Amino acid sequence: MRRTISKLAGVAAVPMLAMALAQPAQATAATARPADASAPAYFEFTDGTDTFVFQLTDPAKIQQARNMLSGVDTEDTGVMGTVVKTPAPYNQPWNYQLDPGSVHFFSMATEVCDASISYVNDHLDEVGGALLPRSTWCPWHSKLTREVTAP
Rank of each mutant, 00 (worst) to 15 (best):
R2A: 15
R2P: 01
T4S: 03
L8N: 03
V11C: 08
V11D: 05
V11F: 12
V11L: 13
A12K: 07
P15C: 01
M16R: 09
M16F: 09
L17Y: 04
A18L: 14
M19A: 12
M19S: 15
A20N: 00
A22D: 07
P24H: 10
P24E: 06
P24R: 05
P24N: 00
A27T: 08
T28N: 13
T28R: 11
A29D: 09
A29F: 13
T31G: 04
R33C: 07
A35T: 15
D36C: 04
A37L: 08
P40M: 04
A41I: 04
F43R: 02
E44W: 10
F45K: 01
F45Y: 06
F45V: 02
D47F: 05
G48H: 00
G48Y: 11
T49D: 10
D50N: 01
D50C: 02
T51P: 01
T51D: 03
F52P: 06
F54I: 03
T57K: 14
T57V: 15
I62D: 12
I62S: 07
Q63P: 05
R66M: 10
N67T: 08
N67G: 10
S70C: 02
G71C: 09
G71A: 02
V72L: 10
V72F: 10
D73G: 01
D76H: 14
G78Y: 07
V79R: 03
M80E: 11
G81N: 06
K85G: 10
T86I: 06
A88L: 01
W94C: 00
Q97M: 13
D99G: 01
P100H: 09
H104L: 08
F105T: 12
F105D: 05
E111D: 14
C113H: 13
N121R: 00
D122N: 14
D125H: 04
V127W: 09
V127D: 13
G128T: 06
G128P: 01
G129V: 01
A130F: 12
A130C: 12
L131K: 10
L132F: 01
R134I: 13
S135E: 07
C138N: 12
W140I: 07
H141W: 05
H141P: 09
S142T: 10
L144T: 00
L144S: 00
L144C: 09
T145H: 02
R146K: 14
E147I: 02
E147Q: 06
V148F: 02
A150Y: 08
A150Q: 15
P151W: 06
P151E: 10
P151D: 12
